[in-house]
Amino acid sequence: MNAWQTWIALWTLVTKEVRRYMRIWPQTLLPPSITMTMYFIIFGNLIGSRIGPMDDIPYIDYIVPGLIMMAVITNSYSNVASSFFSNKFQRSVEEMMVSPMPNWVILAGFVIGGASRGLAVGLIVTVVSMFFTDLSIHHPWVTIGVVIMTALLFSIGGFINALVAHKFDDISIVPIFVLTPLTYLGGVFYSINMLPDFWQGVSMVNPILYMVNAFRYGILGVSDIPVGGALVAIAIFIVVFFAVGLWMLDRGKGIRS
């Protein structure tokens, strides 16, 4: 394929993915906004007013970046995991396999599509949060960079999960047993400075802590960790995960007999 044909193939796949989650928006875009509204009401307004400030920031303001990031992570991951696995399940993945489209385009198409849903949901949650607090962004480029990189990283993770999955249960295990605990323990609701030294050390091996704090730094200007290192770490993870996903596709893992 020449560059123009490759671009058409990539655009086709991305628009197909966007069309898919827009068609079923009550399942894909609406639920996260309702869930996050509940978080803002309960943890932000009702309980948050009794907790007091966190790192000298009102509690509701403190949790907004973490909740946006939580929505971006779970939606980017689950979009690609469920979409690609559905393609495997319905065998429509064969439409792509018989075409001359390179494997990196297949991977990139799903990842961009999934990241776009994560970002769309992140935007919706941001808009919802504005009903509860006034957001002012301290470092716009850090904010945008971190959220896009995080959405891409977890979309690739969802793709790898879908490749190795044999049944629908297999694509819900990682979000339930890995992503949710890591997100809750990743400093969404608290600063790790509140933890004893030992648990602070344990928290430092949680990659989601770095993404949440880098994003919080972008919006609020405060972070528990060095932001530059977090950005480099996310970028390295993206490259490694993309390479692993492509390697699996090239070998037909989970899609060719």
Partner: peptide
């Protein structure tokens, strides 16, 4: 290739299925 089993997304529109395949081949 026309396989033995149906292998398209059953929820997509008929026209979209054909046009999407054209896109995979880089057809404008």
């Amino acid at each position: 290739v026309v396989p033995q089993e149906f292998n398209f997304n059953q929820f997509e529109k008929v026209e979209d299925i054909v046009l999407t395949q054209a896109g995979y081949y880089g057809m404008p």
